[in-house]
Amino acid sequence: MDDRTAIDELVFIRKVIEDSKRSVVENGKGYILWGILVFLGLMSVYLGYVFKLPTNSPWVWVVLIGFGWIYTLASVFSKKHEKHVRTFAAKILNSVWISAGLSMTIIGFIATSSGMINGLALSPLMSTVLGAAYFISGTVYDSKWVKLLALGWWCGGIAMFFIANIVQILIMALMMLALQVIPGFIFYLSSKKEIK
């Protein structure tokens, strides 16, 4: 065996490993679903406040977040049976998003109903947690644009800590669309391309 063949072998190994890494590509459905659910919740609060509608109720959140969790858990269990491959990266990503989601659910429901956290602190806190989850995801995917989303969530979180009025809810809703739903669609389209 000569140098050239050895290099070819190493290049081949690298290509195979990179190719299989792409098998963890996110289908984006979870991002889209959660983004839309939270967006709807935030808009119900905003519109309820501005137009004095009865939509500003904690029950709206219970229904939306409850639906999100049922869908998420159902898809996690069904995926266990249909996946052709299990990767360490996918395991890490699942853990990151389940733990981030659980933390946000605890902060959103328990911390506010106990009175420990002011409702106005919710959006910036959620934004900060989302920033951490996106940063880890960006590292696992080795993707700069996903890491930039983290930066967007963190900057938004910092800004919202200084906006103690209803505009904060609108900002969070728009961030949810721009930094969660749209990236979800990008993931969805690239996963479709990958399958083809």
Binding site: I13, V16, I17, D19, S20, S23, K83, R86, F88
Partner: peptide
């Protein structure tokens, strides 16, 4: 070639099904 590809594939994932390996 084929066994090297299989080893490289399996080193980058935790586990894989026959059909996944076949496709790759």
């Amino acid at each position: 070639r084929i066994r090297l590809a299989l080893m490289a594939l399996l080193i980058s994932v935790e586990e894989a099904e026959f059909n996944f390996l076949k496709e790759k």
